[in-house]
Amino acid sequence: MPESILKRIAEGDRNAVEDCLNSYGGLVYSIARKLLANDADAEDAVQEAFIDVWKNAGRYDPAVASEATFIAMITRRRVIDKIRHSGRRISTDPIEEIVQEPGDKGHKRIELSVEANEAAEAMKTLRPEQQTVLRLSIVDGMSHQEIADATGIPLGTVKTHARRGLLRVREALGLGGIIDFGNKEAAI
């Protein structure tokens, strides 16, 4: 197995930077471009995300997640910060198209992340409303209030769907976290 790119970065290997950008530059940029309202914000978010990657590479634990998932997590955090300050990219697609089954949209996920496949399987076990809320939130970057407004689902119910759906996915991925919330709520 090749040595982890992030481990090499954590050890100060400058050659690993190029490898990281080759492997994940498109991913990070694509996430930012999809979710952010303007290109300048997207570029800022990408630059900041990679700074976080360089700084936090030592935190990466391959036993917990793939590099793609770890880097996507860092990217999402930066993008969410930007969305809160600047606004998300406004989709021109009808809400029905946004929330539909992904079809073959995720066909590259095998190459990207083992957890992506597991998350996809977990998603299938969720109730349709939970799937809708998670897609609108995580894939399209909508706030809970925006989801409530767009779908007519009460805000409190949106929050409940997001929580239970995410708990289920977290459980399916074996991500215990530091706090054990148990399976009771996720199973509801």
Partner: peptide, 30 residues
């Protein structure tokens, strides 16, 4: 606790196909 953020990231990757390339000027900055 990163577990919720990691779950969200995995979900994003499961439904999202990265199609864009990092622009060269941005790559240089990074």
């Amino acid at each position: 606790d990163d577990s919720f953020d990691l779950a969200a990231a995995a979900l994003l990757l499961s439904e999202f196909e990265p199609t864009e390339q990092l622009p060269s000027h941005l790559r240089s900055k990074i």
